[in-house]
Design a protein around this nucleic acid. Structure first.
Length: 955
RNA sequence: GGACGCUUAGCUCAGUUUGGUUAGAGCAUCUGCCUUACAAGCAGAGGGUCGAUGGUUCGAGUCCAUUAGCGUCCACCA
């Protein structure tokens, strides 16, 4: 006995992983004769830690990787981490503020970046530790970081080439500005949220004594952001609007500021909406920006980087050049005020001046920065853009033509809808942490792009007298992530890995980053990576999109809700106090922390028990049905931990009971029917497994394993072997054959299950494989071959035979339970009306049946008169147990009448179908035959039940 | 406003692509068992008419139409 008495995964999981890693088991074979299979791990944030979503995706990736590695592919799982610009910078800034009361500006750029590298060194190990605990078989020797030297080189190369091809440009445009982080962000990083606010109706006085048709001396506009009034340069009305037609081209006096602004006709103004008049602020609103362009309006920027009112506005012409075409004056009262303070003050002043008509409650969807969490402000700034509209064409085509497949398919639509209306991608960020943009400016502000300053001078023939300053901005994190599949394989060098493993086989990721990452990866990869024929290579052939893991109530897991579950706590367990303090750490508001603590204590009064990695991974697979979100269920985890326990104990049984038998590959004629049965089931399970894996149906993978191991192997086969191995009438050869099969199937199932449950399978395999000599070519199950269905013969006859055994066994147990006859009471059972085949099946498996049902014998009977019996139909036959003193007549009658009712119901519905002429004439023959057989079976069973009732009534 | 997904047992979910006998699983519940692999277990049982309506069909959880509720993404919101 080599397995511990109880299943304690913590005793072996970490140790096994260490051995695998030391033995280099995670490295690709680099054997060109093998098929290549590769996955690039979506790089997690370097300073973060893994959450359930990571555990979920990594489980799926690892299962695929392990399957392909065992199945003989040259397999690479490329791993690494992402520098995650904004997120990381924020973490370190917060730490700096908390521990040293310093801002990054106090330190300066260089020192601050140094601090981030330090922080990375210190915290970067968290993720890799977690991945190891999860059993991820990534090739650690190839681990990369988006800011490391090689990847930075790829970033430079891509930027410079795209610039030279005019696919990257710089321009002054209206961007989404995050005033908290003081950086531009892309459209995707903006989250619209419903917010309760107000709509202010403001009167703009007409200049020069003009009046509207209604005789008013003002136009009324509505706004949700009154402070932008300071930057208004026009009011727009619809060109068709009869109310204001004659005012077009005339002027208004901008309230509070006093400058004259034009009334323009533009279709942006909708006659039926609001007042029909729209204030136009080209520098602070995307629609107004477009209107401004159309009417050559000046753009007046009134906000500072942190969204305070400027002392003096910046005025630009439509080319984005500084201009004096209108005044830059801002009333003193508002200068330096925060935008929201200014808003209140402006509203107040408008009211005082009688220009505020009225206020309405208004629910608006307000744009927020997804990182900073404050409302973003559209701002006119100089930024760098990628012409995604051009790069996107090829990326769209690749999916349309099936070069890349989304699983599940419905995500294709999501991809299309975005790709078909692609806006240019703003890639510059006013941060310090990231890849600095390789652009230099001379004293006149002329821009030069190259890989470094020397190259700039060479490329643009600039002498050393020209002073150059590098652009301060860094690139959007997703810019480097977009290169991930090829930059990690050594591009721009032509490496053997790039040739072998690109395109990668599959990308496993969440739907939330399809736009952020997947689409951009496709664009960049297809532009830069070509095959030997010059055709664009896709980054991956398949995108497997996973759902989100939510909590029990379907809520998104988030720190602020305090419902986050750490995958490692599922594995190793955590006591309640630690869990509470983990969930409430760094909480700003103590009331919320208290609430979370209370809820956590209620939900996990005992903390969380250790379940082991295999149980967690198995659960994640079982819940992974087709791309839909998963509501995490602790009960499922417990259930599958029990499953691991079951496997463990079954293995203990096997190892205990094969002693004294010779384990050599048996002759077919020595195999018991039970052996042939389980081998058939095994073969079928293997092919079902392969199908499920190839279809990314990990829920089915879990079901197949669970059912085969528990419901076939443990519940039936292992029970059969108990009587076979002890049977003195069987030859030693036959018993050896069964002992061999017992181990053979177990060892095979371990290989079959290994991709999902790596640790328990390795542990058991190490005990079973040597018994069969299967550890010769591979010392670890990781490198053993994945089972093939054709190695195990499917024997239909044996399956039918055992199916009968199961029917009969179940019927006897059933009858016993219904009649409340203890399973311990030895009985004789009568079998009436069995056909020849049923008798044969019974005879050849008699000992198994008797053992499983605790019967003394089974006696065949015909039509002869019998003493009073309790009975139960088994297919077309019937089992009977003599009642004698065992059974109460009333109970038996009640039971029979229930059965009668059920059978009659079935019969009448089947009869109805069969007597329907349309059914007979139109339904396919096999269906009709099936119905007829069903009817006959039910009929014969009913006859038996009726006869029994008669018998009993005579007593 | 556009698109997509979900609604099946007390709970969490399969099954719907390709319509076919009496709709499955785990957990929970109930009954009986500590039978030396396993009480994290064994043997049994009860429980749903598949969101609603209408249609197609011999036959609908499955196909079509309409509709309700929930959710997600995109766009817009002076």
């Amino acid at each position: 006995m080599q397995l511990d008495k109880t299943y304690q995964p913590e005793n072996f999981e970490s140790e096994i992983y260490k051995q695998w890693e030391e033995q280099g088991c995670f490295k690709p074979s680099m054997d060109k004769s093998q098929q290549a299979f590769s996955i690039a791990l979506p790089p997690p944030n370097v300073t973060g830690s893994l959450h359930m979503g990571h555990a979920f995706q990594q489980t799926i990736m690892d299962s695929l990787i392990r399957f392909h590695r065992m199945d003989g592919d040259n397999t690479l799982w490329q791993c690494g981490t992402d520098h995650a610009g904004i997120a990381t910078q924020m973490v370190v800034e917060r730490k700096l503020a908390a521990e040293e009361k310093l801002t990054r500006h106090d330190l300066g750029r260089e020192k601050f970046i140094e601090r981030i590298w330090q922080w990375r060194k210190q915290s970067g190990g968290t993720i890799t530790k977690q991945m190891r605990r999860l059993g991820a078989s990534v090739d650690w020797s190839r681990e990369r970081f988006t800011m490391d030297e090689g990847l930075s080189r790829a970033v430079l190369e891509v930027f410079v080439r795209l610039y030279d091809e005019d696919l990257i440009y710089r321009g002054k445009r209206l961007v989404n500005w995050d005033p908290k982080l003081r950086t531009a962000i892309s459209d995707l990083e903006v989250e619209n949220k419903e917010v309760k606010g107000f709509m202010w109706y403001i009167r703009y006085p007409l200049a020069d004594g003009l009046k509207t048709q209604e005789g008013k001396d003002y136009l009324m506009v509505a706004t949700t952001r009154p402070e932008t009034l300071l930057g208004d340069t026009a009011v727009a009305v619809n060109p068709e609007d009869p109310r204001f037609k004659d005012l077009v081209g005339k002027e208004l006096i901008l309230p509070l500021v006093g400058r004259r602004i034009k009334i323009v006709a533009d279709i942006h103004a909708d006659m039926t909406t609001g007042t029909g008049c729209v204030k136009i602020t080209p520098a602070h609103d995307f629609n107004d920006y477009a209107v401004g362009k159309r009417h050559s309006l000046a753009m007046v920027n009134v906000l500072t980087e942190d969204a305070c009112i400027r002392d003096e506005a910046q005025v630009f012409n439509t080319q984005g050049e500084l201009s004096t075409e209108t005044t830059s004056y801002i009333p003193e009262a508002y200068r330096g005020l925060d935008r929201f303070v200014a808003r209140e003050k402006i509203v107040e002043d408008l009211k005082t001046q009688g220009l505020l008509d009225h206020i309405e409650d208004h629910t608006l969807s307000q744009p927020f920065g997804d990182r900073g969490g404050v409302p973003i402000e559209p701002m006119l700034t100089d930024q760098w853009y990628v012409r995604a509209s051009i790069l996107g064409k090829e990326a769209l085509r690749a999916v349309e033509e099936g070069e890349i497949k989304f699983v599940p398919q419905q995500y294709t639509n999501m991809y299309y809808s975005w790709m078909r209306d692609l806006q240019d991608w703003c890639i510059s960020r006013q941060l310090w942490w990231g890849h600095r943009i390789p652009a230099w400016y001379d004293e006149n502000g002329k821009v030069y792009v190259a890989r470094n300053e020397n190259e700039v001078r060479e490329k643009y023939h600039l002498g050393s007298e020209v002073k150059l300053v590098q652009d301060e901005d860094v690139l959007d994190t997703w810019f480097s992530s977009a290169l991930w599949t090829f930059s990690t394989l050594g591009w721009p060098d032509k490496t053997p890995e790039l040739e072998m493993f690109h395109p990668t086989s599959v990308l496993v990721t969440g739907f939330d980053i399809i736009f952020f990452w997947v689409a951009r990866m496709i664009m960049m990869t297809m532009h830069f990576i070509k095959d030997e024929n010059g055709k664009s290579q896709v980054p991956f052939k398949t995108v497997y999109v996973t759902g989100l893991i939510r909590d029990e109530e379907g809520q998104k897991m988030s720190k602020s809700k305090g419902n986050v579950l750490d995958p490692l706590d599922m594995i190793d367990g955590i006591d309640i106090d630690s869990l509470v303090s983990k969930r409430t750490a760094n909480m700003m508001q103590p009331q919320i922390a208290q609430k979370i603590a209370k809820r956590t204590q209620k939900q996990f009064p005992q903390g969380i028990k250790a379940h082991g990695t295999d149980a967690l991974r198995f659960t994640l697979c079982a819940l992974a049905s087709n791309g839909r979100d998963i509501n995490w269920d602790m009960k499922r985890l417990e259930g599958y931990r029990n499953f691991c326990n079951k496997i463990w104990n079954a293995s203990r049984f096997v190892l205990m009971n094969i002693e004294g038998f010779e384990l050599v590959k048996p002759q077919d004629e020595n195999l018991n029917i039970a052996d042939k049965f389980i081998l058939s089931k095994l073969s079928q399970a293997i092919s079902a497994m392969r199908d499920a894996i190839n279809a990314y149906r990990f829920d089915q993978v879990a079901t197949i394993l669970y059912e085969f191991i528990w419901n076939e192997y443990c519940d039936w086969y292992v029970e059969f072997t108990k009587s076979i191995l002890k049977d003195p009438s069987l030859s030693q050869d036959k018993k050896n054959a069964t002992a061999y099969t017992l181990v053979n199937v177990l060892e095979t199932v371990m290989r079959m299950a290994h991709p999902v449950m790596p640790f328990i399978t390795e542990t058991i395999w190490q005990q079973t494989a040597p018994l069969l000599g299967r550890n010769n070519e591979a010392k670890t199950i990781m490198l053993a071959s994945y089972p093939k269905a054709c190695d195990y013969l499917v024997d239909d006859f044996a399956q039918e035979s055992i199916a009968w055994v199961k029917e009969l066994t179940t019927a006897v147990r059933n009858l016993r339970a219904e009649m409340k006859v203890s399973p311990n009471t030895k009985l004789e059972v009568l079998l009436r009306g069995a056909n020849e085949q049923q008798k044969q099946f019974t005879d050849e498996n008699l000992k198994l049946i008797l053992a499983l049902t605790n019967l003394t014998s089974i006696k065949y009977v015909g039509d002869e008169k019998l003493p009073p019996c309790a009975s139960k139909p088994v297919l077309t036959a019937e089992i009977l147990i003599e009642m004698s003193s065992l059974v109460n007549k009333e109970d038996e009658l009640k039971r029979l009448n229930e059965m009668k009712k059920k059978l009659e119901g079935n019969i009448s519905s089947t009869q109805a179908r069969l007597s329907n002429e349309a059914f007979i004439s139109k339904a396919p023959a096999n269906i009709i035959e099936g119905a007829k057989a069903q009817l006959a079976l039910n009929q014969s069973q009913l006859d038996k039940v009726l006869a029994q009732i008669n018998e009993l009534n005579k007593l």
